[in-house]
Design a protein around this nucleic acid. Structure first.
Lengths: 330, 330
DNA sequence: CTGAAAGCGCTAACAA
DNA sequence: TTGTTAGCGCTTTCAG
């Protein structure tokens, strides 16, 4: 079947060791033999068996990245840029969808133990750091976008507190007083910081938030529509809403049209991310621009540095800049 | 460092073979020994080294899928559903972005040869079948969405000819006579069939298409905007345009607003895919609904069948249904 | 500069 | 039902 290194050796009249040296660009192989090896390899259509190499070298040249869902544009863009950098450096990127399932997350973490990956990136996290920590002995771990409390590894992060504060402040400055908050799925560090930023601006302005103005688990366009329907039948509805995603905001705007609610006349809507959709909607969605690609690139740069230059794995926060994009929805 | 099967054997007072049997659920292991093995494994925190398993078994439980870009919503949705089915059947899905680069595609094909994957799915293809064919000896290959001419393997496909014909017919029935066509990147089977479907409806109606009404390489929102700008300055512009993607259509509609062109008054715009954006835009985009998830699921079902039941790899067309979704943009 | 040989961790005959 | 043994294909000392 597939030719092995031994077949090449035989054909070239050399030893497997020499073939291996050529494959791995070792110095001290005469040009003459090198040519012989290349010729034999070509003739046989030889390619080294990666599993044998991995077993021997105890390395896989593969990095895993854990995300919620690839169909979420934020993650697909993040992953795209990570993949490019990884490939440029000779690494493969394994994309792992957790769907916010702790069990699946743990399974993926086990890839480190079973030597199927050299390193792992969390772009979404469910587990406690105390659990994750145990896997550090098997390879470097880096956080990006979200992180686990008290994690002692590099964290590439956008200041959610300040960005939410900025967005909320914008609403307040525009004169809105009945603010609603629409958060994501879980209360991770990201969710917590974002909520605190919102609250901080609200308290500073001395505003009061009714219980019914709080929404959570809003992730999709559909979620946005549903929330808007709830708002549409409220006795005392909010006059502005801060959402954690452009998709939710888009769903709300779409549904508002059906319900006869004017955006921003009756309800101002803020998104988050600055996805393409934020610009395309009518009205355009005011949002916080997160440089997703940059985040992916920088995260992978850190990881490559760890892997290639064997830099020490230590805690540091790398801030990603953000900015407010004002459009018509507020 | 990491405990090996031998460590477990020693601790349990058994042979490595027995441990292996337990790991692989072989019959004929007494419950008593099994318990001993589990206890020892747990105590050592043992996990089998997959590279050793792969080398020995000559299997990876990994399937690759080749796509253009993961940030394209069509592909990210496709991949999401494939991943779910793959995981349910104990397979990992390796996502490979080719960016329409033949060289990269070939690199990924080589994963079959180097035993890093068991099988491969093309959801986008650049190479000739004559090239791809040579890799069949290393594992099954299946096409999905697009395919290579004369490929002799399963092809999961949406009838592009009929769908384009249907969409174009819709425009003609609405009374538009100056039709423009806006195609994708390359002239693959998918692109060719779609174009033929368009032409067929056009010829049937006896319409004339000006040279300047043909556009190609349109993929993104930005591309759509640019094309609209070109149209906006034409002496004799089209009155309806058939595009190959909702994103292109969305870009055109957005830009039309800036240019003072009415959609559909001055220009009717048709999309393709029925992405979420098609519903969200104002006007809503008339489009062809492609059941992406179903496509992903069915493709993976075929692949799993091939892999698990060792079904024979033979040519067959599996049709995915489509339907026209009429909204306001036409 | 090159080759011989050991062994990465596991599985599957073959024996017992 | 269990153990012994021979590799899977490659890399890396260690000798020469």
């Amino acid at each position: 079947m597939m030719p092995t290194i031994e077949d090449v050796a035989k054909l070239a009249g050399l030893s497997p060791a020499t073939i291996s040296r050529v494959i791995n660009n070792h110095p001290y192989v005469s040009q003459e033999k090198k040519d012989l090896v290349f010729k034999a390899m070509k003739e046989l259509g030889y390619v080294p068996n990666s599993n044998a190499q991995r077993l021997r070298k105890q390395k896989t040249e593969t990095i895993a990245v854990l995300i919620e869902r690839i169909a979420n544009p934020f993650f697909s863009q993040l992953v795209e840029s990570m993949d490019i950098i990884a490939n440029e450096n000779g690494y493969k990127l394994l994309i792992c969808q957790t769907n916010n399932d702790k069990r699946k997350e743990l399974e993926y973490l086990n890839l480190l133990k079973t030597k199927q990956i050299d390193a792992l990136i969390f772009a979404s996290i469910e587990s406690e750091w105390s659990v994750v920590e145990n896997f550090l002995q098997y390879g470097p771990i880096v956080f990006c976008n979200d992180f686990a409390e008290s994690a002692s590894v590099p964290i590439i992060y956008l200041d959610q507190y300040r960005s939410a504060y900025t967005g909320t402040k914008h609403l307040i400055d525009k004169g809105y007083t009945k603010l609603s908050y629409c958060g994501g799925s879980k209360l991770t560090c990201l969710g917590r910081d974002r909520k605190n930023g919102f609250m901080s601006a609200v308290e500073e302005a001395g505003l009061n938030i009714l219980d019914q103005w709080w929404f959570k688990d809003a992730l999709t366009i559909e979620d946005g529509k549903q929330i808007l329907r709830k708002i549409s039948v409220m006795d005392n509805p909010p006059d502005a809403i801060f959402t954690g995603s452009d998709e939710v905001a888009a769903g709300m705007i779409k549904e508002a049209k059906s319900c006869g609610i004017k955006v921003p006349g009756d309800l101002a809507v803020m998104g988050f991310d600055n996805q393409p959709i934020a610009e395309l909607m009518e009205p355009g969605i005011t949002t916080i621009c997160q440089p997703v690609k940059q985040m992916g690139i920088q995260t992978m740069d850190v990881m490559i540095d760890l892997l290639v230059n064997k830099r020490k794995l230590e805690h540091r926060f790398i801030q990603i800049p953000f900015h407010l994009v004002v459009r018509e929805s507020t």
